[in-house]
Structure formats: C-alpha cells, structure tokens
Amino acid sequence: MTHYFYGEDTYFTTANTLRSHTGEEKQAYLLGCQGPDPFESLQLAPRLHEYKRLGLKLQTDQIEECLANFKGSLAYLSDHERPTGRAYVAGYIAHFELDSRVDPFIGAWQQQLCDAGIEGLDERDARVVKAEVERDLDEMVLYTKTGKTVDSFHPVQCLEASDRIFSIVNRMYRYMLLKTYNEVTPHNLFSGAINAHRTMMRMMRSPHVTDLQSELASAFEINILHRRHSLYRAMAHRARKEATSEFDNSKHEVWINPYTGSIDEASFWDLFYETQGEVQTDLNCFLSQDFNAEKAKLITHGLDFDGKPTQESKKDEDTEAEPEKVAAE
C-alpha cells in the first residue's frame, strides 16, 4: 500500500513529464509502482511456479540492464500502446526509488531489534521482524493518506489493471527477461504474477488479531511448521487507526545503514517525500534518446532494490581504487 500511495503522490509530476494524463496510463503507472514484488507470489501459481526465482533476480541482478531493456521493449509496441508501456516503467522506476531508500531504514530496525537482547528474538527471526516493521508503516501510511484502515480499504485495490494493460506489460516483460537474463518465459507471466499477488493479498486480509483466519494460520505455523513466531500474523494488516508508527523515527534518532555503514537521522516520512523529487530526474534520464544500461546507473547509483551496493558497483569501486594503489606502491 505504501508504494501505491507513493505513486498517487508522484503521478501528477510524472504525467507532466510523460505528457500524458489518460486513466489507463495512470492505472499502468500505479501498477508499475508495485515493481517486481508481485513475482514473489508466483509460488501460488502452479503453472508458473518455476518462475518465482525471477522475483529475487529482478530485485538484485542486472537492474540497469532491466531498465535499458524495458526501454527497448517500447519499440515493439504500437503507437497507441507505447504511452501505457512507458507509464508502467515510470512506476517501476518510482518503486525502485522508494525501495532503495527506505529498505535500509527498515533493515536498520530489523538489525536493531534482533540484536536488542529481547527474549525469544534474535537474527533467526529477521524475516518476521522485517514484516512487522513494514506492516506497521503500511498501516500508518494508509490511515494518514485516507483516514481508512483495511476494514474499508482492501490492499488488492492497489493491483487494479485492465486486460489491455496486462497485454502490453506481458509483452514488455517477455522481451526484457529474454534480453536481460536469456529467459524464455510464458506470454502471461506478468499477469499471472499479479493474479497470484491478488490471491496472496486476499489470504493475508485479517484486520483483527482475533479473526479465525489469523488464529488458524498462526497455530499452523507454530504447532505444525514449528516456527518460533507467526509470519502470517506479522504480515497481516491490522485495522489500526493511527497516523504514527513505532518505527517512523519521528524523533530523528541516529540509525546505521546496514548495507553501507553510513549514519543517518532521517525519519520514514523524510525518506518518503525526499525521494519524490528524484523520480522526475530519473524519468528524464530514462526518456533520453541515448538511454542504455550504463546511463541507467544515474538512476540506480549502483544499488539494488534493497539499497545494497551491487556486485557490479563494487567492482567499479575496486577498479577506480586500483590506480591509487599502484601510485602508492
């Protein structure tokens, strides 16, 4: 939901940059704002299950090439389809911008809580802790932006799209995945991922801790799967009427980026709004005629979706440092 409302905030500026304001293009943009996340739900799609690994690949591997090949895919759309395809990629870039800045913030909370010496909580519970933090922030964003909770706003609303949008974006992914990873994929892979993600959202809808669905899922995880904590309960949004979160860092306390070691004091809302100014710059870069994987580094800054420096950027740093090392010797 946070990505959806981030897209709502940034759409007006994006539409002006793209010079298009149709309802279909806005819908494509908001869908793009979900980034590659829906691919993580392909485990729920029996016929597409084998492609679930692409979710992690898209998040961490050859991101600049993905963006360059998304741009290349636009050439194979009709003139009437191209604005919608371009709007989708604009949203995808907006997802990257928010993810790469906020994920280190969430990672800092995850590390801090796992290392806090709380009984029954350590690094083995990192996934559940991360889910708790993200869920709490999601609830805060929803209530702040709409005054609603998941009692009246179903997260699946963030995944609305027409069959025409699916047709366009399916083809774009097929081209991009082939060119980037040499992966030949089904023609309906993207729409299949969205449908699986919708199913996941419906399964995870349990606004109240006492809901039978929540209690059964939690009991199954702990008693049958022998998990220390319920991931379902950590992920399922609560009907929480609060415009704050324990994890919003509104007091601007110091936190350490777990991936770079840099020190920061930014709050969640600082990161949420500061990154919005970058989206237009990113789009201008993407829309330039000479856009390619190398130029895409101006968008990624050598980071993946988690905000971690990629292996390629580390190699570049090592290459740049080599002449200095030789000079010193």
Results as ranks from 00 to 15, higher is better:
residue 45 A to Y: 12
residue 20 S to C: 15
residue 100 S to C: 13
residue 154 H to F: 13
residue 26 K to Y: 08
residue 116 A to G: 10
residue 276 Q to I: 03
residue 35 G to K: 02
residue 57 K to M: 10
residue 313 S to Y: 13
residue 235 M to K: 11
residue 286 F to N: 00
residue 45 A to H: 11
residue 220 F to H: 09
residue 82 R to W: 10
residue 137 L to K: 07
residue 180 T to E: 01
residue 174 R to K: 11
residue 249 N to L: 06
residue 3 H to W: 01
residue 51 Y to I: 03
residue 78 S to L: 05
residue 78 S to P: 05
residue 198 R to W: 06
residue 45 A to N: 13
residue 238 R to N: 03
residue 238 R to D: 03
residue 214 S to V: 00
residue 229 H to L: 04
residue 215 E to M: 12
residue 218 S to P: 08
residue 16 N to E: 13
residue 206 S to F: 09
residue 125 D to M: 07
residue 248 D to A: 05
residue 274 E to G: 08
residue 29 Y to L: 04
residue 9 D to Q: 13
residue 93 I to D: 00
residue 329 E to L: 15
residue 24 E to H: 11
residue 326 V to A: 12
residue 121 L to I: 10
residue 144 T to N: 12
residue 307 G to E: 00
residue 311 Q to W: 15
residue 200 M to S: 13
residue 190 F to S: 02
residue 272 F to Y: 15
residue 258 P to T: 00
residue 202 R to S: 05
residue 125 D to K: 02
residue 99 D to W: 07
residue 147 G to K: 08
residue 126 A to N: 11
residue 112 Q to L: 11
residue 72 G to H: 07
residue 166 F to Y: 12
residue 279 V to M: 01
residue 9 D to P: 09
residue 14 T to S: 09
residue 141 V to P: 05
residue 135 R to I: 01
residue 9 D to L: 09
residue 130 K to H: 12
residue 78 S to Q: 06
residue 41 S to H: 03
residue 195 N to I: 11
residue 116 A to S: 12
residue 118 I to S: 09
residue 194 I to Y: 10
residue 185 T to E: 00
residue 222 I to V: 09
residue 266 A to I: 07
residue 314 K to P: 07
residue 42 L to K: 02
residue 26 K to F: 06
residue 291 F to I: 04
residue 288 S to V: 03
residue 235 M to G: 00
residue 210 T to I: 15
residue 186 P to V: 00
residue 3 H to P: 01
residue 66 C to A: 09
residue 327 A to S: 14
residue 78 S to D: 10
residue 108 A to P: 04
residue 285 C to I: 11
residue 312 E to T: 12
residue 195 N to E: 15
residue 81 E to S: 04
residue 11 Y to Q: 10
residue 156 V to L: 09
residue 79 D to V: 08
residue 138 D to G: 13
residue 293 A to P: 03
residue 268 F to K: 02
residue 212 L to F: 15
residue 74 L to W: 10
residue 150 V to G: 04
residue 256 I to Y: 09
residue 47 R to A: 15
residue 55 G to C: 01
residue 146 T to P: 08
residue 283 L to E: 03
residue 280 Q to T: 10
residue 57 K to D: 07
residue 189 L to W: 05
residue 157 Q to T: 11
residue 114 C to Q: 01
residue 304 D to F: 04
residue 98 L to E: 03
residue 62 Q to R: 12
residue 236 A to H: 06
residue 4 Y to A: 02
residue 164 R to C: 09
residue 103 D to I: 10
residue 122 D to E: 02
residue 216 L to K: 14
residue 51 Y to V: 03
residue 247 F to Y: 12
residue 58 L to Y: 00
residue 56 L to S: 14
residue 247 F to G: 01
residue 146 T to I: 07
residue 93 I to T: 05
residue 109 W to L: 01
residue 222 I to C: 11
